[in-house]
Design a protein around this nucleic acid. Structure first.
Lengths: 307, 307
DNA sequence: GTTAAAATAGAATTTTAATTCCAAAAGTGA
DNA sequence: TCACTTTTGGAATTAAAATTCTATTTTAAC
């Protein structure tokens, strides 16, 4: 037979499909096998995260890369395709598949099914979720968390109305002009000043966090061209007021983050930024104060072209 | 020509596909047309519901049936297939298609895309917005404040879904049992630990705030019946991880406040409390972390009948 | 009751996405 | 440095889902 006579027939796969499917089906029926019994696939997203946490260390590079992406964006799994996730995590689609199998799933589809079943639970609106959190019993930590979350949100909402844009602008001007910024605030105001300290340090803005330990005040460090950020809420800390007053005497500008206009800091002709934060018992959700502080820091950094 | 001679040839579609695809492609290229400009498709789920409300009355039976189903189960659209929705609503898949077209979409896929983006849009792209704000330093501080307030609110809302009530309860149990609580967290986590330190001190709960200054770690203070609260976010602070690991070795319980499940703290079999907070450059709105922290502190105090 | 129009169900087909496969690259230990 | 294993990227294949098509049924008007 001469080669010229040979004809290659490519059978369209679509014609084959049916038969193959049938054979497969029959085989499955005979062997009494389920589609995918999924040996050790996580049964809940909690179980999945647990496994992920334990296994992440041992995964090869690309798989770990994807694992981290998933950990950071868990909600995207339910509504994305393999290709989309792969692109977003900057890995190949096949890496995604390998990851799914490594986690015990038969493939992506099975894993996605798990996330999708969880999806509707996350959907209820804010009020419903809050109610659910409280359900655990009025004394439970989660009920308390619901309380603080709500208070925090209310405080943030308030913040927009209590802070005067003009005063904020003025504060930024003053701080950007200052040679050194002194951060003063103790006890429950300390988280605010320490965060300001971190932020200024990071941006290279000269700032001193007054530690207030051992009752040593470092007022002698304050110079005329400096500025002081004083943070205090009722009951006002004596030391904060003292240092602010000394700073004013030495000619420094004072920016006050405090709670009400009648605050003793008002006497110092300080630029006042008011934060009406709500209390739960004796404790205060600092959400609003921190947000104001970080705004201040970033604005000053931006003004100085440091970020 | 006699009828007997006529032969009907059905060309396998698979052979046609390629050519047709090419022709389509070329045509599109020539005409410079986008795939599906979608004349009057709703651009948001709000617009969709509005249209649905107005049009539902005039829809034929099956389509109305499906419309009602959608109205009752809006969350299922994003994570279901046509077949699944059809089955759940007890209509044919083709009815679903007709519904989608009736609502102005090119098909189901386009409609689903809307619902999916709506879900992931829940956490809008603050990071980029803020980055832009900072770049253009021209923006007013109050605009920046508004952004941070928004971010804070979103973070708090998110906190309710990322924190597992069981883990929170467990953490409180462990901390209430501990002889001494060690607070570990530096740099941007420090505001959190320092606030915990303040709260515990105020309630009389024995707690040590590890200062982390001068690279002196105080791990030798940790005893078997103690607990460690380790707070760290990417990039994880070495010192925090070290102290937590030492604590684990010494037999203390570890409670971790961190950002993702793949955090190195997972290795230590720590009780993990996850906080998904937005980073703005190197800065983090700490609202959620602080709310979680204060919840933890107050719950422990309550458990010990100290407040 | 008859007829035309509209709507529907279900199958056929196309399109898109998931999964597998394999050659090439990157590690690893002798 | 060389053999050997693991991991990776990308194409090829298979499976699944979306979309279209058409015969049939229902509806509504006359």
């Amino acid at each position: 037979m001469s080669a010229a006579c040979q004809i290659r027939i490519k059978i369209p796969k679509s014609l084959l499909t049916e038969r193959v499917k049938l054979e497969k089906k029959n085989f499955m029926a005979d062997a009494n096998l389920e589609p995918a019994p999924a040996d050790d696939a996580p049964k809940s997203t909690d179980a999945f995260y647990k496994r992920l946490g334990g296994q992440a260390e041992t995964l090869p590079k690309r798989l770990r890369q994807f694992a981290e992406f998933i950990a950071a964006n868990p909600d995207r799994v339910a509504v994305s395709t393999v290709a989309e996730l792969a692109e977003a995590a900057d890995v190949q689609p096949s890496a995604v598949m390998r990851f799914c199998q490594e986690m015990g799933f038969s493939g992506f589809s099975q894993m996605q099914k798990l996330f999708r079943s969880d999806y509707s639970q996350k959907w209820p609106d804010y009020a419903t979720r809050l109610a659910k959190l409280r359900e655990h019993g009025t004394e439970s930590p989660s009920a308390l968390l619901a309380e603080f979350v709500e208070v925090g949100r209310a405080s943030l909402e308030n913040l927009m109305t209590t802070v005067d844009p003009g005063a904020l602008q003025q504060a930024v001007d003053v701080l950007a002009r200052a040679e050194t910024i002194h951060l003063v605030g103790f006890r429950r105001a300390f988280p605010v000043t320490s965060y300001l300290g971190y932020a200024f340090e990071k941006m290279g803005v000269p700032a001193i966090l007054h530690p207030g330990i051992a009752n040593i005040s470092m007022t002698h460090l304050i110079r005329p061209n400096d500025a002081v950020i004083a943070v205090t809420f009722t009951p006002y800390s004596e030391m904060t007021l003292d240092i602010a007053a000394k700073g004013r005497d030495l000619g420094a500008d004072i920016v006050a983050i405090t709670d009400v206009v009648t605050s003793p800091l008002a006497r110092l002709k300080a630029i006042q930024l008011l934060v009406a934060e709500l209390d739960v018992g004796d404790f205060r959700a600092l959400s609003a104060s921190l947000s104001l502080a970080i705004t201040l820091a970033v604005s000053v950094g931006a003004r100085k072209n440091l970020i």
